[in-house]
Design a binder for these strands. Structure first.
Lengths: 209, 209
DNA sequence: GACTCCGCTGACCAATCGATCAGTCAGCCC
DNA sequence: GGGCTGACTGATCGATTGGTCAGCGGAGTC
């Protein structure tokens, strides 16, 4: 009977408690004692398994990053018409962000804090694949549409991800801004962002001053 | 001779040191001892003037927020054609973000960390005015353009701010992504974002499935 | 000179931090 | 049984944390 939930051995419990707490409050605000308490373990045991607080943090971060890219890749496999493909990409990215908020916060904090040294590694190992996939999607959609290109696919990926990430991190603030009701209406939000992206691709060089 | 630089009294030195350090590393990673050292003062003196670490943090945060809104408001006063007005709004927001990076990080961290309780206060006191101004700008531009409305001005403000904030916080990562060269070319970035926003406003209901 | 006020300091506090220690206990191999 | 491994613990380390307190020294005031 005990096959479905794998009984969660000690190490995994520590990992999950650490992921939750680091995601919620950040590296410095969380102590090993907190993690040990939530994991139902002892401080010494954490050092036994992970060596140091920093090593635990990076272990948790790496795991979060790996799981994130898997989910995102799944969300973009379908072959539909442009409107539906873009919509699906928005929804997929949004799902990844919201289905495990602690993980998302953990990763974004790492991006913010990373100096020039670690930024390149992050770009290659962590976000590169997702960004490329999204860029390809926009390039495909533009190529299949005779109207006009003229808009960089990678920049459209930037706009999509920016908007979603901002919605995720700031939606408690956004919902209280005048006209910020979209923060609580996911479908309306997705439709609006989809329209912004599709219109950007289709309209031609009419905006040149 | 000592009139132009106001000699920076002790309290102001503390405030600046705290703003720099809190912006760089966040609340928990910075100790009063660090701040005292950078300010050339003593721990006890900081408590003498501010009472507690939290009070110092909030004082610094409030000051950062006030200065931020002032700058932003200045950047949007001009009356030009739609393309130039949108471009100016993008540039203004970008300038505010990059001209004092520590301040910007401080504020954004507060948005991320703020629970539902403090989020409403932040929305009203801090970002409300800027967001309203930006929303009005898009509403104006759309009204003056006969082509079509159909796109929520507040959502366009969201897209503009999201894209800029993301560029600011992640540009060390973005520049290393394939096609992410725009992260280092501000003028190209501004042009692309302007086009995305203008096209979104002008194109009509052609995207409805 | 004696007085107060105020910006400021060094010494100090209890609490907590990350980390280490010796040692316990259960399981496994021979 | 004996030898060994690895998960785990309570006690404890030195360092650092946010915060307190008595007091110093200079500027003003009578």
């Amino acid at each position: 009977m005990e096959n479905a939930p794998p009984a969660l051995d000690g190490v995994e419990k520590i990992r999950r408690a650490a992921a939750d707490l680091f995601g919620e409050r950040g590296f410095d605000a969380v102590s090993i004692a907190h993690i040990a308490e939530r994991a139902g373990s002892s401080k010494a045991n954490i050092f036994h398994h992970f060596g140091s607080k920093e090593a635990l943090y990076f272990a948790v971060l790496r795991e979060a990053v790996d799981r994130s890219t898997d989910h995102f890749r799944d969300a973009m496999r379908a072959e539909l018409d442009p409107s539906q493909r873009v919509e699906r990409a928005i929804r997929g990215s949004l799902t990844v962000l919201f289905e495990d908020p602690e993980r998302s916060r953990l990763i974004f904090r790492e991006i913010m804090e990373s100096g020039p040294c670690r930024a390149e590694a992050l770009a290659n190992e962590v976000f590169g694949d997702d960004f490329i996939a999204l860029t390809r999607l926009f390039a495909d959609v533009q190529a299949g549409d005779e109207a006009g290109q003229g808009m960089s696919p990678s920049f459209l990926a930037h706009v999509l991800l920016s908007s979603n990430v901002m919605l995720f991190h700031c939606h408690q603030v956004l919902r209280h801004l005048p006209g910020g009701g979209y923060a609580d209406e996911q479908e309306r939000y997705i439709t609006m962002l989809r329209d912004v992206l599709l219109r950007s691709m289709r309209a031609q060089k009419e905006t040149n001053a």
